[in-house]
Design a protein around this nucleic acid. Structure first.
Lengths: 340, 340
DNA sequence: GTGTTTTTCCAAAGCGCTTTGGGTTACGAT
DNA sequence: ATCGTAACCCAAAGCGCTTTGGAAAAACAC
């Protein structure tokens, strides 16, 4: 059933039916009701291609999907994507994912030229990210999940990574810890860089700036790396008594390392991690329950999608920036350091 | 730059340019070369909406994205999706994901009516899956990742789950194990049901059909469940000496449980898991390295996408079914049971 | 050289929708 | 009765592409 058939069926013109369905003012309430009802009844849905062609807009959000597996975020990405998809769907938008290996330039070029997406979502921004300039140049609206260094204004939603890790580190310091190590994600990405800054700020405030007993390491956020990093850090002398992990997956590995070394989480080593609220990794089920800075990454996806749609429909960029504060959830993995 | 401009620029008709670009026979090689070159140079890309409208096909694959988090497959799904996206992209297809909560009917209806996707991908089929009938009724081509019970023929790619778990169980039996437990995924899903069948078959062949000392349990494939299930199983008397896990994540939890009970993997308890080859969970890095039945779920995604595109372009269904054998990779988590 | 086929190209007709730029009709005001 | 103004509706023009059904030109057969 298409528009022509539907309007013939109703004895109205295509124009009127179209306008009734799209909420224009100049159609009588009674007519509109009839139209909407009939459309509902026969299950009319506008052909997406035709609508795209006519309006020039695709009612779709685009996102590049890095399929090469070296990307650190796999388990986080899906959760983020779930959020994006949820609100996109809710607002009648499709979500078009395009695979990329290496550079995403080609995908964005295609989005822009074929008008396949009205706005694109940029995730995992690097500290200096060429994509921003590219998208600006292409005139393709975009919103960034995270932040980056650029003079240009850009729509984004982020969490206060720096504040979160400053806070987490301060908690350990206040408890008396003096040797606090950071197990970070890839520091080419802004979120990791920010967390490092937060950690450093707290240390500096405690007079521990660049203290060699407060080491750090970074890399892909896998369980395996968490184990390796934690193990390496804890085998130093003196060993750190506090561990800040950039993801629960890393903390997972850290727990394993701590156990393997005959130590006990919460007694010998305090651990705090950032929790993106992945459904299959629940920090409170660990033993002892893991203290976290918590911010559901899915929520981030939802807000990014919302911003992207608003951007595509004309909301100015400066109204589309948000940086969410992060909660610190105190649990059993943290305690005062053993005296001595 | 659109077709009209491009053809004006070349001094040719739109028809000729279009046909040249789309590989029709009736355009002189020299002309074609000129056209292709010019298109390349000016970066011409056909408007996707226009093409959809004209051809009736969208050059897109559709997939429903279950955003309610009770879905077991989260980490598996992304990897599968990566495979789908990769080959879709390679072949010039977009991938449209549509969120669903609960039933996916509405999404498929929409795909069908708006012609947003030329074919859809069905993942995580239940043993009896209403979606098959629905899609058949809608006339929307689809390919299933996995199998289901239905009299209708349908395109699918699956792995030999039954054979894999039969094989794994037989290995343990051959080593002398007599109490082998199964920690399975949600048995409403076909893959889990098939694995159970394989386990049962091997047990039956060893004369252990329905042996009460060979218990099983099932549920979402999380680390947490792996821990709970393994712990419960191992606290029975007599305790099983062999554990078959439906995912590495479950095995992960099982390892933790085994350790917590003061037991040792490979010595007191042998563990085998199915490995979907998730990049952030590497079974060989566990201690001891985990024996697995291995089949990269990403490869599955790639093949599903390939089938879906072939289906959309006219390949008959009966040429689009495949069930891949599964390798058993023998590692240190398996040994003969302690005598006694 | 004529007739026939093949090769190469093109004009024009859609695909199904939105939107512009009027028309009608109804109604209150003059 | 007449005019002006809303309120409601419509015909027709596109959006950018593909595809049908030729036509013109070139190649071939005799």
């Amino acid at each position: 059933m298409n528009l022509r058939e539907l309007s013939a069926h109703l004895g109205l013109s295509q124009t009127t039916v179209s306008r009734a369905l799209n909420g224009y003012a100049d159609v009588a309430p009674a007519t509109r009701r009839k139209v909407v009802e009939a459309a509902e009844r026969v299950g009319y849905r506008p052909n997406s291609g035709a609508r795209r062609l006519a309006t020039g807009r695709s009612q779709a959000l685009g996102i590049a999907f890095p399929v090469d597996r070296n990307l650190l975020l796999d388990p986080h990405f899906i959760e983020f994507l779930a959020g994006v998809a949820a609100t996109a769907g809710e607002k009648g938008y499709d979500l078009t994912v395009s695979p990329t290996t290496g550079t995403e330039d080609e995908v964005y070029r295609r989005f822009a030229r074929t008008r396949t997406a009205d706005a694109v979502i940029l995730s995992g921004p690097a500290v200096e990210d060429r994509r921003i300039a590219l998208l600006n140049g292409l005139g393709l609206p975009f919103v960034v999940h995270g932040r980056t260094q650029t003079p240009l204004p850009y729509a984004h939603v982020d969490i206060d990574n720096r504040g979160a890790f400053r806070q987490a580190c301060r908690l350990l310091l206040d408890l008396g810890h003096r040797r606090i190590a950071l197990i970070n994600g890839d520091e080419g990405q802004t979120f990791a860089r920010d967390r490092r800054s937060g950690w450093q700020e707290a240390l500096a405030q405690a007079g521990l700036a660049d203290d060699p007993d407060c080491p750090s390491c970074c890399g892909a956020m896998t369980e395996e790396n968490g184990y390796r990093f934690a193990r390496a850090l804890l085998e130093r002398t003196p060993a750190p008594t506090g561990l800040l992990c950039s993801s629960v997956l890393l903390a997972f590995g850290a727990y394993r390392a701590i156990r393997d070394l005959g130590l006990t989480v919460g007694r010998d080593v305090s651990v705090i991690a950032h929790d993106d609220d992945l459904p299959f990794l629940r920090p409170h089920t660990l033993d002892p329950p893991l203290t976290v800075t918590r911010s559901p990454i899915r929520k981030g996806g939802e807000q990014v999608a919302d911003f992207a749609i608003r951007l595509a429909t004309g909301t100015p960029i400066d109204q589309l920036t948000d940086v969410k504060p992060v909660d610190l959830v105190y649990r059993g993995s943290v305690a005062a350091p053993a005296s001595g």
